[in-house]
Design a protein around this nucleic acid. Structure first.
Lengths: 162, 162
DNA sequence: TATAATAGTTCTTGCTTGTAACTAATTTTC
DNA sequence: GAAAATTAGTTACAAGCAAGAACTATTATA
């Protein structure tokens, strides 16, 4: 096994003369650090892309999943998105008020609502997705398609490693 | 240019019969989504690794940079870490109270403090770094060293693409 | 010398997140 | 079949974090 951190410390210490390495080189040995920074950049871009549609990333993801899996329940949605159910309620409220989704009571189990996107919801999602994809595309312009695929594959592998 | 999103929508729509694709496949075409999920996993792990040392990720990063660049000022630190100066003050307060760092007034410019880690600070950082590296190592056990290098390289490329 | 800019700080505000508790409906257990 | 436990959705609340305005002390600029 490599010892990335010790190597990074040595490199940083050797380069006290300023100018060579980045100021945050000592942190770059941690995957979490690079991951967070890349995430922040993409997050900002996605946020910007969704703003014209009055969608936050959270509500965009929710709407996407409802479109992709019509009839999903709030609890299932919360599981997939890895958020607390309680935190989804207000988001559903808003999406419903904007007539982007509908809560349909399940006759088989009257505790549940099955969630469905409206036509409006699907249309909005389509535009918002296109805009977000476009922005992400701009962001990843200096990556080849192969590199992008590799990145996604590795991220997934990392996520599953838990 | 690939159109990842449309491809993902088609795939999801075709697979309404449940069981094949993941429930969040429709979101996987967005880099931001996979990035966030991977980040959340690593974040949780790092948080857990640092808890025994009473360090949050934020204070750990700050301490690392102070160790790596002795004499750095609060404003510089804020720039590197990409946080507001005001939000760093309390963190510096705490690190100083715990005798992990010291604020040394700059005689050339008496508005500034130059930040230095104490011996205690360096010792604690060393242990905390080792623990975090170990946890990250466990998390990335199913990635080869090459894959890890590639991941870091691609993340950096992505981050810079902004 | 007056004005502007900078470093650090304080205070406030909003946002996000998690937790506990509640209602209604269903399932399990005896 | 009645009582107890569980589940879905919801509400209210509290903690933590991030962003911004405004203040003091100090330095740079005009």
């Amino acid at each position: 096994m490599q010892d990335r951190h010790k190597a990074a410390v040595r490199a940083t210490s050797a380069d006290m003369s300023e100018g060579g390495a980045d100021t945050d080189d000592i942190m770059r040995s941690f995957i979490g650090y690079s991951l967070k920074r890349a995430y922040l950049v993409v997050h900002r871009v996605a946020q910007g892309a969704l703003q014209p549609f009055d969608l936050k990333i959270r509500s965009f993801s929710a709407l996407s999943l409802i479109v992709g899996r019509p009839g999903i329940t709030l609890t299932e949605l919360a599981e997939v998105l890895q958020v607390e159910r309680s935190n989804l309620v207000l988001i559903m409220d808003e999406l419903e008020q904007r007539d982007l989704i509908a809560r349909v009571r399940d006759p088989k189990d009257r505790r549940r609502y099955s969630l469905h996107a409206t036509i409006r919801g699907r249309r909005l999602l389509e535009k918002a997705s296109a805009a977000t994809s476009a922005e992400e595309g701009r962001l990843t312009a200096n990556l080849t398609d192969d590199e992008l695929d590799t990145l996604l594959k590795l991220l997934r592998k990392l996520e599953t490693g838990a």
